[in-house]
Design a protein around this nucleic acid. Sequence first.
DNA 1: TTATTAATGCAACATTGTTGCAATAATATT
DNA 2: AATATTATTGCAACAATGTTGCATTAATAA
Lengths: 124, 124
Amino acid sequence: MKQFRNTTAKTTILNVLKNAEAALSHAELLTLTNGVCDRVTIYRVLERLVNEDNVHKVVTSDGTIKYAACNHTAHHSHDHIHFNCEKCKTTTCIEMVKPVIQLSKDYTVKSFNFTVTGICPKCN
Amino acid sequence: MKQFRNTTAKTTILNVLKNAEAALSHAELLTLTNGVCDRVTIYRVLERLVNEDNVHKVVTSDGTIKYAACNHTAHHSHDHIHFNCEKCKTTTCIEMVKPVIQLSKDYTVKSFNFTVTGICPKCN
DNA sequence: TTATTAATGCAACATTGTTGCAATAATATT
DNA sequence: AATATTATTGCAACAATGTTGCATTAATAA
């Protein structure tokens, strides 16, 4: 299988994501990485980071795609919800809250995307 | 305020959505309406239909935006989940199932988008 | 039937994401 | 340390999706 490499583009992008308080879009990453690499490279690095399970992809309520660094503390999982603030437009991971749903048994659930929209504590 | 009008484009689009078994994307609507109106008109009609509360907008797990006719039976609400089948690629509304979450009180929840991905009963 | 103006079509543009390919650079090998 | 291998990058070109301005068309009101 393919051998991964640590490049400046990759480490920069991952650092920006780790230092970010909220999930970032491709466009936001483009400005925050400050020309360290091409637009296309950001797409490709993000794809790799998601595959390597270092970053997860979040789809916000309005369809925008954002990326957040996974915090690999304790029991890491992608099964958490996201909060989308209408005021400051940030998308944050809320790891503590687990949603409960009951689907009939003929559905096979593989993953979910749960985004709550409203006003966050900071803006409230 | 603005007065709405019933046009062929609008009624056609709404009918296509009502007859559809799953939520439809803009591209799907473009082919299904069979040239009844321009690409741009579909965007504008969909916007109106959403504002009039006749259609609701669904963001699928992969970020695709789809539209579904609201069924105004009994107690209508947009607070339901959507199921995204990996096999047949359909997005369907599941009105019966209500998700349960407990967010701390400093969050103001206005709406949510809950999309579950997996295999639907038909494909299972 | 006529007047009003919401709705449409078209062109042009903006944004977002994808692909092919030659050049570059990170790692392994000698 | 120098070289070979190939993952990664930059660039150009493209495709898909969504937006805007404006003249024209057509629903509704008068």
